[in-house]
Amino acid sequence: MNRKFLCLVIAVMSALLFTGCSDSKKIDKASIAETVTVRQTGGQTIYTFYLLSSSEDVKSVSVFANSLESACYLAKENYIPNLSLSKFELFLADEDLSFDILKTDLQFISSEYYLSPLIMVTLADGNSIKYISESKEAPKEVEEHLMLLKNKNNETDINSLSVFNSIYSKKQNEFSMACINYEDELSVSARKISVKK
């Protein structure tokens, strides 16, 4: 009995020693980004990460980068070391953004295991992106509008999975994507996007 107990204790202690909790993410320390927007200003692309917080104000971090992948890297390196995209739900791209950048970003989203295929992707005008930066409720409103659009028009692609597949589809050269506009209030429409094969 004593020998068995000793073996058990040694086993548990070894496990504790060898593993530790060094790879834990820790809910209280993580900076969780729920929404990301990308816009182009003065020839530069700006990615803004909107973080989950309980405060009244919108918490965000903006970085200059050429792609979402490098933006994540730069944000982690310089501003938010505990950045977590595991709750990333909404991606707004400026309607004037180069299609190649959007394609690259979608490629990145599709290749990362921790990113959900159901991340909502939509184009947005400048006012909408400004609205997102000012109101904490804005992302939820945008998501609701996207769902309504999808219910009305089933062919519109609203998540990264369907947008990605439409871009790389061998069967069609254009697809329909959502576009958010803001003038006094949010509205959403479907926009046809042509894809060069």
Partner: peptide, 18 residues
């Protein structure tokens, strides 16, 4: 979940718990 998988919490609960 709190140590390793905070993403499994629903968003509202995640905020409050964190």
């Amino acid at each position: 979940f709190a140590q390793f998988h905070p993403e499994y919490f629903p968003t509202g609960l995640l905020l409050k718990t964190a």
